[in-house]
Write a protein that binds this DNA or RNA. Sequence first.
DNA 1: GAGTACAGTATCAGCCTGATAGAAAACTTC
DNA 2: GAAGTTTTCTATCAGGCTGATACTGTACTC
Lengths: 402, 402
Amino acid sequence: MSGPTSSTANAGTVSRVNQTVILDVLRRHGPLSRQEIGARTGLSAATVNRLAGQLLRKGLVVTDGHQPSTGGRPSILLRYSGRAHLVSVVHVGATRTEGALVDFDGTIVHRVRPPMVPGVLHAADRATIRLEEALSVVTELGAAAAERGQPSQAVGVAVPGVVDGAEGRVTWAPALDWREVPVGSLLHDRTGLPVVVENDANLLAVGEHRRGAGQGVQDLVAVVLGTGIGVGIVTGGRLHRGSRAAAGEIGYMLMERSSLTRFFPGFGDLESRVGSAGLTRQARERGIAAPTDRPLTAADVFDLVRNGSAEARALLEETLDHVALAVASLCTVLDPELVLVGGEMGGAADLITPGLRDRLVGRIPHVPRMAASALGDDAAIVGAAELAARLVSDFAYVQATP
Amino acid sequence: MSGPTSSTANAGTVSRVNQTVILDVLRRHGPLSRQEIGARTGLSAATVNRLAGQLLRKGLVVTDGHQPSTGGRPSILLRYSGRAHLVSVVHVGATRTEGALVDFDGTIVHRVRPPMVPGVLHAADRATIRLEEALSVVTELGAAAAERGQPSQAVGVAVPGVVDGAEGRVTWAPALDWREVPVGSLLHDRTGLPVVVENDANLLAVGEHRRGAGQGVQDLVAVVLGTGIGVGIVTGGRLHRGSRAAAGEIGYMLMERSSLTRFFPGFGDLESRVGSAGLTRQARERGIAAPTDRPLTAADVFDLVRNGSAEARALLEETLDHVALAVASLCTVLDPELVLVGGEMGGAADLITPGLRDRLVGRIPHVPRMAASALGDDAAIVGAAELAARLVSDFAYVQATP
DNA sequence: GAGTACAGTATCAGCCTGATAGAAAACTTC
DNA sequence: GAAGTTTTCTATCAGGCTGATACTGTACTC
C-alpha cells in the first residue's frame, strides 16, 4: 500500500540491468569496442558479446566502423543509436499545439503543427477543441511513423498543468481549461501504446538534463517563465514530481510577510507579480504601451527593454527581483548544480542570468551555475520523448540502499 | 566520470535484491508466514524458503510463534529483527555530545553521555575538544558493544553542519568550529568499520521517515529550529543531499526584496530572523527578559509564551511569519506529503503547527499534513543508526528508469 | 485412527554469467 | 606470398539463482 512495492529480480532482470549498463556506457563514452565495454563495465567478454548481439538485433546499438588495428584483429566499434525507434510527442501549449516524431536519440524527425484556431484562447469550449486537436495530432503522428516503416512505440504528452502521473490524468491545466481530463487513457485507448503525460516545465528539465544544457548534471532546476512561472526539478538524475505532482509550482510562492494576510484565489503570489497577468497590470500602471489584443508577456517586456524603454527596464528589474528571491529559495532548499532558464526567458538569458547572479552573490552561500535552455522551444518535446522512450525500453538498474 | 557508475548484476545480485524485498515486506507488514511473503512478493515458495533460511541464519529474521491453523499445518510466522546487530552512533550537537548503541530495529540499547566541558562553547580550541570527545565516545561504544557480544558493525555520526558525503568530511560546522574535519576517515582508521557522517537535520528527517512520524511517507520535510534553522528532505523515500550537500540550508533563504541589497556575511537572512542570535536581539529590542549567560533560544521563547508573556507572544508570531514563508517555499518547490517540526520546535508543536497552517491555508494550493517529530531528541541518532545499518547490510534493489 | 488441508522441503529444468578454449581477422616478418 | 603473431570475436560448459513439480510433515476433523 504505502510506498512503491519493490519488485523482485530473476535471471531476466540481470540481463536487462546489464543491457542498460552497456547502453549507458555507450551513450556516455561514445563508440566503444566490445573489449572496452567489458573493461568499463566489468562484464565478461562472453556476456558483452551476447548482450551486444541482442542490442544490435533490437536496433539500439549499431556498428560504427573499425578501430585501427594495434597488431591484431581490429575491433568493431559499437555505438548507441536511437534512430531505429520512434515515439510520438505532442506538446499542448497555452497558445498552440505542436506534435513531433522523435527518435530515441532525441532527434526530431517529423513535425506536425496544426493551424491555430482563431479565437480559441477565449472560446467557451476551448478545452474540448484543444483535446481533439491533441488527439488528432497523435493519430497523424502515428500514421506518419507507420509510413516511414518505423511504427511509433509510445506517446508522450507535455501539458502546462498538474498531472496525476500514474493515470496520465491532467488534474488541472488553467491555460487549457482542462480539469480532470484523462488524456493518458484516452490516448492509450486510441493508439494501444504506452502513454506518459507530464507537466511541460518538468519535461523541459528532463529534456535539458538528457539532451541539452544539463547533460552530465545530476541536480538541476529549470525555471520556466511564460504565462505563469514554474520550475522543473531533476534531483539525483531523476525527475522530482512531489507527493501530488505539484512540485515546482513556485507561482504560489509567498514573497513577503504581508502575503500572509492576503488571499490568492486561483492564482499565486509570485505568479501575480511576474506572470503575464501581473506584467500586463504593472505595464499599464507604468504607462508602458502594451498590445491591446492580448496580455503582455515577458517576451514583450524583453523586446521593449532591447528597444531601450526605460520603463520596461524598471519593470524587468522588479521582475528579476522576484525571480531572484524564488531562485534563492530553490537554491537553499535543493542545492542544485545548475539553474537553467527556459520558456520566454530562455531567449533572453543575456538579460537575465547576470541580473540574477548579481542579486544573489554574497547573499546565499553558493550561487550555482546558470545557463539558458539549450533546446529552446523543443525542450519539452525532447523531454517527453525521453520519458516515452524509457517507458518502452523498460530497462532497470540496481541501486544500493539508501 | 559524470554521474554514478551503474554497477552490473549477476546471480548474487538477484539473491540480494530478493532478500531485500523480503526484509522490506516484513518490516512494512509485520510478522508474516512464508506463504504470505510469497503472495506479497511474487516469489516462489522454494525461493522464499531458501532466502528466509539465509536471513534466519544471519539473524535479521526471527521466528515469531505460529499462526492458528486453518485446518492444516499452521504456518510459522517470521518477523524482521534487528536486535542481533548493533551500530555505534555519535551525535555531536552544538552544546553537547551524545553517543548510543542502536540495533537494526532502531532501538537504543546503550547510551554514552560524556560530561560537558565547562566553557567549551567559547574555548579557542573547542574544535579539537569536541573532536576528541566524539572519537572517544565511539571508542567507548565499540567496547560496550563488544562486551555485549555483539560487536558494533558500523559508525554513524550526526553533525550540525555541511558534510561531504563520500569522504565523511565535515566541510563546515560553525557550531563546532569545524572546518574540513575528516571525521569519517579518522573514525574509519580507528575502528576499521564503515562510517557514515551526515548533517543532523538530514538525519532527523531520515530517522522520522524510517522510525518516527514519517513512516510510510515517501516525501517529507523536517524543519529543525534550534541555534539556526535547517531542514532535512526525503524525496521518493531517499535523503536529498543536493549537489554540494547543502540542500535544506534554508537559513540562507532571502525573505523580502530589500534582502537583495543587504549583505549576509557568514549567516543567512532567515537565520538572522529566527535563529538564536536573531531572537536574542529582538528580545532585547522588545524588552523581554532574556538569560544573561547565553543567547536566547526558541525554547526560551516558547517557555515565556506558555507563561503568558505578551511580548514573547508577539515575538513568536513574528517568528512564525518567517517560518511560514519558508515552509510555503518548501511546499511549492517540493510538494511534500508531510512537514515535520523538530528540534526545539518539536516539543512546542502545539504552539506552532496551527499557526503555520492558519498562515498558509488559502495562500498555497495545498497545505500538507504537519506534525511534531515523534522521536524527539533521539531523531538524529536514530537516523544515523539507520544509515549506518544500511551501509553494512549493503542490500540492493532494482529500479526502473527513470 | 484415517482422511484432509495446508505448510514446508527436495529435486530438476531453464536462464544468466563467467571461464576456457577455439575460430576469425588483420598485421608482421621472412 | 606464406607462415606466424596478436588481438578480437564466438562456442561450450560449469556454477548460481529462480520457479515448477512432486513430496514430506503437521495439525485439525470426522
